Simulated scan of single mutants.
Amino acid sequence: MKSILKNLIYPYGITLSLLFGISFNACTQKMSESVNNDKAALNGSFEVVKNNLPVNWLVYTPETVKKGNFDLVIDSDAIDGKQSLKFIIRSCSEKGGWLSPGISQEIKVEPNKTYHIKCWIKNNNSKFRIKVDAIDAFTKDVGPTIESSETTNKWTLHELTYTIPEKMDKLRLEINALQPGTLWIDHITIEKDQ
């Protein structure tokens, strides 16, 4: 009787453990890395770094972006302060978000207020996207996007303006590299109209 029961349960037990193991792994995949520091605020010039990560940013790193080959570097070439964030990309997804090298951050905002987002970029053969959205606990409003593959050997300012829709309370900024090359990011500011 024991051997009959064992023969019945054994193949199903493996199937169930594989099924639950696969779904558990898919749900627990780490999408970004982050280190927080309340004193660093936005940290838009990446001057505060811990464990080789700029604090207060969600960073899509080589550890979390599984289909990519790139390095994340804190670089001394900067437009503001002493350092910038540099991605050296050998391969990556063009989809963006947590599937591509990059950073994101969410900040509390006021509904019906206009915000100005500025970011300095240097780009060598890569393609990048700067994307702004408004979110709340249940919905997302797609805001403006800049996408460029222009190679610039000098720091170039990119600006977006966005009015937060009613009932939204967070602004989400995301910057991604979408193809191989080298991308520098520095001096990100988010300011509300007075």
Rank of each mutant, 00 (worst) to 15 (best):
M1Y: 11
M1C: 05
S3D: 13
I4Q: 10
L5H: 05
P11M: 08
G13V: 04
S17A: 13
F24H: 11
N25I: 10
N25W: 08
Q29N: 10
M31E: 13
M31Y: 01
S34E: 14
V35N: 09
N36P: 00
N37H: 14
D38M: 10
D38R: 09
D38E: 15
A40V: 09
L42C: 05
L42F: 07
N43L: 13
N43H: 12
G44K: 12
V48F: 14
V49M: 10
V49H: 12
K50I: 06
N52D: 12
L53A: 07
P54T: 12
P54D: 12
W57Y: 03
Y60D: 14
Y60F: 15
Y60S: 11
Y60Q: 11
P62L: 13
K66A: 15
K66H: 15
K66F: 15
K67E: 15
K67A: 10
G68F: 05
G68T: 02
G68V: 03
N69E: 14
L72D: 01
L72T: 06
V73S: 04
D75I: 06
S76Q: 13
A78F: 04
K82P: 05
Q83R: 15
L85S: 04
L85K: 06
K86P: 00
K86V: 01
I88C: 07
I89Y: 08
I89N: 03
I89E: 02
C92D: 02
W98R: 08
L99E: 11
S100M: 10
P101F: 13
G102H: 10
G102L: 11
G102K: 10
G102M: 09
E106Y: 00
Y115D: 05
I117K: 06
K118S: 15
K118N: 15
C119F: 01
W120M: 09
W120A: 08
W120K: 11
I121E: 05
K122C: 00
N123F: 06
N124F: 02
K127D: 03
F128G: 02
V132Q: 05
D133Q: 07
A134T: 01
A134D: 02
D136A: 03
A137N: 09
F138R: 10
K140Q: 12
V142D: 08
I146L: 14
S149H: 06
T151K: 14
T151F: 03
T152G: 01
N153P: 08
K154V: 02
T156K: 15
L157E: 15
H158N: 15
H158G: 03
T161K: 13
Y162A: 02
Y162K: 04
Y162G: 02
T163Y: 01
T163V: 04
P165N: 06
P165Y: 04
E166M: 11
M168A: 00
K170I: 00
L171S: 00
L171M: 11
E174Y: 00
N176E: 01
A177T: 04
A177R: 05
T182M: 03
T182F: 02
L183K: 04
W184K: 10
D186Y: 12
H187Q: 11
I190N: 07
